[in-house]
Design a protein around this nucleic acid. Structure first.
Lengths: 215, 215
DNA sequence: AATGATTTAAAACACCCGTTTAAATTAATC
DNA sequence: GATTAATTTAAACGGGTGTTTTAAATCATT
């Protein structure tokens, strides 16, 4: 049953790297299969279509990350009501652990997530919310409880601001780290960037509503 | 010299709308020219290539916005040292004024900016920084002065977080507004989103350094 | 009205895309 | 070891892409 070299895995490995770097529509199946050193038709044989390959690439990460993140949240809420900084920090470990699953897993996952949200008009967003909705709802719930002064509708927007912050930062993290080192003699890695971004996001998510926003 | 129906303008008008909605690579020249009711070849005749058309679309907005934003900043610094919320808010007027330049100008410009930063790996970023660098530097300078407790190296990161927040939010603003209406019966437009994002960004940029970050 | 440059028009070009087909190969089962 | 099933292969299909070409039409200027 199992072929030792696993064409399916080689396709996924090559695809996720290219998708993260160049986006989904900018990455052809021909490029993927040539990098993976497999036949062009094997993508359609194993995955059915390019669209389903994209979903499979994302699912491979989400299936690891989502349960791990949920578990961290459960540990947090078991002991008491955590603050926002603590909640965001709890996601760091599952995020960084993706580097153990695959080389550069953290960066690739975050970039894929961003591309998925922006590029595919809606249908990848739909895939994520329907397949991992429980985990997302759980996260939103915990965040809302830790910032009870923010109405849910406002929190919806702020969490998407947060998603944008993370996704964009990670997508260009390589270039940003280079500039930071050249301009400020500051040595960074992915983890240190994540640790910088957490206070920024936590402050933004919890900031009291202004008069104009309360309307 | 000037033809009253102006093929060039019709192309730009059709292109910016489609680019903002579907992204650059997802929008074909054939779709643009059919919407604009001009001949396919006229794009290459007037702009040279699709890439140059994209730059022309962006430049038409940046040439209006950048000087206007700079002028607002000058007005602000003339009277005293503004706080971050004031600085970000000062950009709102030039942004909203784009609606006077063209129908839905504000939304289209911000979405184009978002797509431009995400889709084209780097070379549109280069176009913007080299053509409008003075304005950008001026902005960074004013922001740094208004938050003197943040070291420049940290501010570098936080401003890029901010860029990510804006860019990602605007690129997916249509989808987000739809969801917000479906889930929370909340009717939004671009201005209300802008007014939501400003406090978020201002809080994040100015948040005091934590022990871990100061190191 | 005639001239010459600018602009538009239709068609073709060369290329890349995702997908499908059908034969060849490999692996598994009896 | 023969038969069946699963997988890989090479080739072609149908369609869309940006761009170029060539000729006609339009325009401003003489």
């Amino acid at each position: 049953m199992a072929n030792r070299s696993d064409t399916k895995t080689r396709i996924l490995d090559a695809a996720e790297k290219l998708f993260a770097e160049r986006g989904f529509s900018e990455t052809s199946l021909r490029l993927i299969t040539s990098k993976a050193e497999v036949n062009l038709a094997s993508v359609n044989y194993h995955f059915g279509s390019k669209k389903e390959l994209i979903r499979a690439v994302l699912a491979r990460y989400l299936d690891v990350f989502m349960p791990a993140a949920s578990q961290e949240l459960n540990k947090l809420t078991a002991t008491g009501r955590p603050d926002l900084d603590t909640i965001f920090s709890a996601l760091v470990r599952p995020l960084l652990d993706l580097d153990k699953v695959r080389v550069e897993g953290t960066r690739i996952f975050l970039q894929l997530l961003g591309r998925g949200y922006i590029e595919s008009q809606g249908h990848l967003r739909w895939f994520i919310t329907t397949h991992y909705g429980e985990h997302l709802d759980r996260f939103v719930q915990v965040v809302c409880q830790s910032a009870p002064h923010i109405p849910p509708a406002e929190m919806f927007w702020r969490l998407h601001f947060t998603l944008g912050t993370v996704v964009f930062t990670m997508a260009s993290s390589d270039a940003l780290m280079e500039i930071a080192e050249a301009d400020f003699k500051e040595q960074n890695d992915i983890e240190s960037v994540i640790r910088k971004v957490i206070p920024y996001m936590a402050a933004g998510v919890a900031v009291p509503l202004t008069q104009a926003n309360r309307e």
